[in-house]
């Protein structure tokens, strides 16, 4: 298997990070594995972690009276969790593994402190996560358009 640093270097959202920055990030990561149905993140809990999926499938969910509703699913190369960057550092959704998921888990609490010291690293990471946030926002907008609603070929 690839080292954590290699995995990060191949992850699109981190393409702007320097070697040193990737190494710094990799030092805060650890390889983790989740069984089917286990939770990577729990809604409302402190957002002290974020993840990069190596191999697997993670569903972002929220509970409704009818049961858990999946809002979005995340896949190989996707990051899971951005609440660690923004006050009050609380997780917004459950992240649940579908099948076995291999991921890298990052110590976000420490990384936050590191970013405050190393503004360049902080800036690049903010850019990385901003690009993810933008992509997800665009996707959400598309979902809101409900384009398949009765507007397609007859």
């Amino acid at each position: 298997m690839q080292s954590i640093e290699q995995t990060l270097a191949a992850t699109r959202m981190f393409r702007n990070l320097t070697r040193e920055q990737l190494a710094a990030l990799a030092r805060l990561g650890e390889e983790v594995e989740y069984a089917d149905g286990s939770r990577l993140m729990i809604e409302g809990e402190p957002a002290d972690w974020f993840f990069v999926i190596r191999e697997g499938f993670v569903a972002l969910q929220t509970d409704a009276p009818s049961g858990a509703i999946t809002i979005e699913t995340l896949h190989n190369g996707d990051s899971v969790g951005w609440s660690w960057l923004f006050e009050p550092y609380l997780t917004h959704f459950d992240a649940r593994s579908r099948g076995a998921t291999q991921a890298i888990r990052f110590d976000a609490a420490t990384l936050r402190v590191r970013c405050a010291e190393d503004r360049e690293l902080g800036y690049e990471l903010m850019r990385s996560f901003a690009s993810v946030i933008v992509e997800r926002l665009q996707a959400t907008r598309l979902q809101l358009l409900d384009v398949y609603g009765r507007a397609t070929v007859s």
């Binding site: 049961g67 190989n76 996707a139």
Partner: peptide, 23 residues
């Protein structure tokens, strides 16, 4: 296959089709 809205029985991907193109 990916769907915009997932019911409780859907265990596949959730999101927009462009996501599949990215993957």
């Amino acid at each position: 296959v990916i769907v915009d809205i997932a019911g409780p029985d859907w265990h596949g991907k959730v999101g927009v089709v462009t996501k599949l193109v990215e993957l």
